[in-house]
Amino acid sequence: MPTTPDVRELTADELADAWQLGRLAFGSAPQPPAHATTPVPGMTRYGAFDATGRLVGKAVDLHHDQWWTGRPVPAADVAGVAVAPEARGRGVARELLRALLRGAHERGAAVSALFPTVGAPYRACGWEVTGVLRTVDLPTAVLPRPRTTGRLAVRPGDLADLPAVFDLYEQVTRHRNGLLTRRGPVFDHYRDQFTADDPPFDGLTLVEQDGRLVGYAGWNRGRGYGPDAVLTVEDLFATTADAARELVSVLASWHSVTPTLRLTPLPGDALAAQLPLEKAREHEQDTWMHRPVDVARAVGERGWPGHARGSVEFTLDDELADWNTGTWRLEVADGAAQLTRVTTDAALHLSVRGFALLYAGAATAQSVTDAGLLRCATGADPRALDLLAAGGPAHLLDYF
């Protein structure tokens, strides 16, 4: 195999081979789902080929949007990266990610997230750990069951209620950072597959106030009713404290047949304020990583806190996405920001991994400096770059 593989978009005829490569890497079921071997809108699939034309690696660019303080930011979220065992350690994944970033930049993406099976190769390509998707188990019996006020109506939902459900998800998530908008061709494609015989959840519980949806829980029942039975809540959102209390009360009613409630809490939301999370046990943790695709777009297309105001200059290094490399001036004011190139020397020298940590609100400039991801000239104060971290912490709730 040559030092540099040939990386290009996969054709429809090559998707079965890509599935087989991923099946061996991840231990998937022998039979592929339909979407794995057919083109899907909003998804670019890349393959790496050796000198003989054999597929030795693959990666997927998911054309998601992420919410950043009220504004959707186009993303290139990465999934399905796999390399044939005989080709590992030869730079195949690096070339795949280089091509993916370039293609994503050309189509207008600004940021990128991924869930790594191993972090080191992605760190070498500019992604950095910025959060953890936590799935926890709660004993159903410890959930509070407050008296209902009578002001809210609780009922089961069906396919006709899904548009209102999607709207409520957006109400809860749009003012936060990092969460997927769940809009766009990829999500539209999968939503079109839902039918009464194949809904997105086993059950959908709705809470309404004066006919308006104010909370919902989408849950899967699982098997059995013994001590090992689990009710898995895939989606749980509310826009008011009363709606959250109603939902928690409904979930508590499962205690006799599902002793365990499994869910993914969103820190600081209306449900987290009602759940006894001190009783939770960790079921699973999935680390996620972030990086900019285009730093100017990443800064300019997101929203910023209205109180944040200031400017700072820094030099950025980005080996895989050289359009990001250079010296920049960041200016933030009135809920917006921009990056402009400058020709003067900057006292702050930031790595792309350091940029990811600050942008996602996962670290302070001082801690990024301590990690060796920000270098300062003598006498320079790294805390000036806390301006880049002004948006607060990012979260992800969707595994991809």
Rank of each mutant, 00 (worst) to 15 (best):
L397V: 14
P146I: 07
G224S: 06
H189L: 01
L236P: 04
E319M: 00
E86L: 04
V368C: 04
E106S: 06
G392W: 02
G268N: 04
Y399R: 14
D235S: 14
H290M: 04
A360Y: 04
A153K: 01
T205I: 15
T344V: 12
P265G: 04
G27E: 12
G354R: 05
L320F: 02
A18H: 00
A380W: 10
L162N: 03
V250C: 08
N220F: 04
C376R: 14
L152A: 08
V111M: 08
L261V: 09
W323D: 08
A29R: 13
R145K: 11
L271P: 10
R123G: 13
R8F: 01
S256D: 15
A280T: 02
A16D: 12
L168Q: 07
Y122I: 01
F201R: 03
T37E: 01
V299D: 04
A16H: 14
P30A: 13
M1F: 06
A25R: 03
A82I: 05
G222E: 12
A36W: 11
D228F: 12
T287H: 12
E106L: 14
A84N: 03
T364P: 03
G103S: 14
L358P: 11
E278I: 00
A244P: 08
A104D: 06
V78E: 06
L263P: 07
L330Q: 02
W68M: 10
R191M: 12
A12D: 13
E234G: 09
D65W: 08
P292V: 15
F115R: 05
C125Q: 09
T148A: 15
V40T: 15
D61K: 00
R329L: 13
H63E: 15
V233Q: 04
L21A: 12
P200M: 06
V332Q: 08
T69K: 08
L397A: 14
P32Q: 09
T378R: 14
V257L: 13
V312D: 06
T344Y: 00
T239P: 05
A18S: 15
P33T: 04
A356H: 07
L180V: 14
Q20S: 14
T378S: 13
R375H: 15
G91V: 01
P41G: 01
S311D: 11
P116R: 06
R329D: 06
T340W: 00
Y169D: 02
W304T: 05
A243M: 10
L396S: 13
G306F: 07
A244E: 09
L168P: 03
P32D: 05
A280W: 03
V73K: 11
Q193M: 10
Q209H: 15
T258Q: 12
R134L: 14
P2L: 03
R8P: 00
D242M: 00
S112D: 13
G303P: 06
A79P: 03
L320K: 00
T205V: 15
P393G: 10
R183A: 13
T240I: 11
R94D: 06
T260L: 10
L231F: 08
V257E: 00
L179P: 01
P292R: 02
P5N: 08
W67K: 11
A16C: 00
D77K: 01
Y225N: 08
A120W: 01
D286V: 07
A84S: 14
T37F: 01
L204W: 06
H35T: 09
P121S: 10
G22K: 03
L231H: 03
V142D: 07
R329M: 09
G108F: 08
V56A: 08
